[in-house]
Design a protein around this nucleic acid. Structure first.
Lengths: 150, 150
DNA sequence: TTAATTGCAAATCGTTTGCTGAAAG
DNA sequence: CTTTCAGCAAACGATTTGCAATTAA
């Protein structure tokens, strides 16, 4: 499989867009990020390499990354978009702790299959989906019990 | 099962909150709404009964409705919260058309069960969940085909 | 040369909050 | 009386946009 940056380069070329130093720095920082992150977290990482880059450029470039297919974006209801590097990754869903906001990725073939069936029954042509399971993680359950003792 | 408005009244009493004419109008309008709606849509309905009520009161009362358990809220990634009357309703998930934004409710026992299993495996204590299936609805598929012919 | 791109600041938009007067219990 | 509430306008915070200057091709 061709590397992620190449996919992005080709995307730019195919759409008559230019490669710029800013886009390169953002792309590299993006690929270096781990797990889920906000636009602002990426912005802070980018600033370390080039402090002159502005927030707007981050937002604009994130849109290109999404469009080129190497990034993915979702919203867990906190009013912020979460991004991740999705290139070459299996689709996954998320378990989210409502207390500490920890996120755990899950992959489940059975659910994926069933979703497709449902969509088909309704005549929908599914493009993507999002499954969010909210709950209390083991750590926070332990903490909650401790607090009750006090 | 006791009626929704009674649940709300008791919720207020149990929490030392007052019943007010505004809250009553908002409650009634809320119960009259169909399907999913935004805070603003509820606001417009409320205004017909009492034009003096402000947006802030709608937001504050919606929070009480959520808290009392008769309302539910979710976010499909449009930057607006969607509310619905959830009292006495089965949990359901949503198929969302990415073209016309139509929303179809789905209920699927198999997926619900599987989710619980996954959560248990990870030691999570699930409080709620959200499944969003994005795709193109039959109507929009037909429209898209027509457009291609042109 | 010329269309694309940047950074900045101002604009958006949904939602929240501080404040002051009014009303509920 | 003593909270709780309401309405208003201002504040907020994430994201977008207009603009004038700069740069890639």
């Amino acid at each position: 499989m061709k590397p992620a940056h190449e996919v992005f380069f080709e995307y730019l070329k195919d759409n008559g867009l230019n490669m710029t130093p800013q886009r390169l720095v953002i792309l590299q920082s993006f690929l270096d990020m781990e797990g889920h992150f906000t636009s602002d977290q990426l912005y802070r990482k980018v600033k370390k390499h080039d402090p002159a880059i502005g927030q707007a450029t981050i937002y604009r470039t994130l849109k290109l990354l999404l469009d080129s297919g190497i990034a993915d974006c979702f919203d867990i209801g906190d009013g912020v978009s979460l991004f991740e590097n999705s290139y070459g990754q299996d689709h996954h869903d998320h378990l989210i702790c409502v207390r500490c906001r920890k996120k755990i990725e899950i992959v489940d073939e059975a659910i994926e299959k069933r979703q497709e069936q449902i969509a088909e029954e309704k005549g929908f042509n599914i493009t993507n989906h999002r499954l969010l399971l909210y709950g209390i993680c083991p750590d926070c359950q332990a903490k909650a019990e401790k607090e009750e003792d006090e």
